[in-house]
Design a protein around this nucleic acid. Structure first.
Lengths: 129, 129
DNA sequence: TTCGCAAATGCAACAAATCGCGTTATAATT
DNA sequence: AATTATAACGCGATTTGTTGCATTTGCGAA
């Protein structure tokens, strides 16, 4: 396996902050270090990192997927499909289920940022949608 | 509120099968009924249906999001981020958690197709990734 | 029925993401 | 060190998804 400098730079970037980036943000950040890097190279690098289980993908309902380093701390969200309000669910609420699934399936779960979609209490009350 | 014929056709389409479609598949299907329909109209129609809580979105790791009618039956998946194998998780495994979260948050959960990513037992054993 | 508002649509420009292919470069082997 | 296989890359073409704006159309009010 060849070593990819782009892989390393992305992993560094994602490791710096306990937060997630869109592919666009990652692309822009990489360009500050490797100005000539091609967009497709960044996408392919992200694919590799995901395939290796080092990076997780989440859809937080903003239209763009976000990437974050696995092990950067679990945090889960409830997202309202109508007003796009985001609520955080305590990790304790979810972790027992993940552990149970891991034991039963022998999968190693990478998802560290579970997103559940729904309609928030306020929007349920709006007569029409 | 004006009625959108495209909204109705999409809902019909999604209701016909207990299955999910990509936006591309939906677009192609719609064209068989409304040959002149514009791509952006389909996307905007999907946005409306999602916003109304009638349609759910899932990312099954294929690159494209899939849409399905809410109420078409729950089914959840474990997806291997390395070999893309997909395993189905019994709904019973997940439903209690959803009920608990609904009670505590008063959100109405729309997600009817939960996808958890991980590394499957086989891929965990591959020396390098 | 007509009028007028607001929602839905089409269109065209744009942006984001993917793909095929030829090239470059790393790392293992000799 | 030279050779070779193959992973990573850049580039251009294509596909997919988004946005602004002008137009059309359905629906309620007059």
């Amino acid at each position: 396996m060849k070593t990819s400098s782009v892989d390393q730079i992305i992993a560094d970037l994602l490791g710096q902050k306990q937060y997630h980036y869109t592919s666009q943000q990652i692309f822009e950040q990489i360009r500050t270090r490797l100005p000539a890097v091609n967009r497709s190279t960044v996408y392919r690098s992200l694919d590799r990192l995901v395939s290796q289980g080092k990076v997780s993908i989440s859809d937080i309902g903003t239209g763009s997927l976000v990437y974050e380093l696995v092990g950067n701390g679990m945090h889960h969200h409830l997202v309202c499909q109508h007003c796009h309000q985001i609520i955080t669910i305590p990790a304790d609420e979810i972790n027992p289920l993940f552990s149970k699934i891991e034991q039963e399936s022998h999968f190693q779960i990478i998802t560290n940022h579970l997103i559940l979609y729904g309609i928030c209490p306020g929007c349920q009350n709006k007569k029409e949608l």
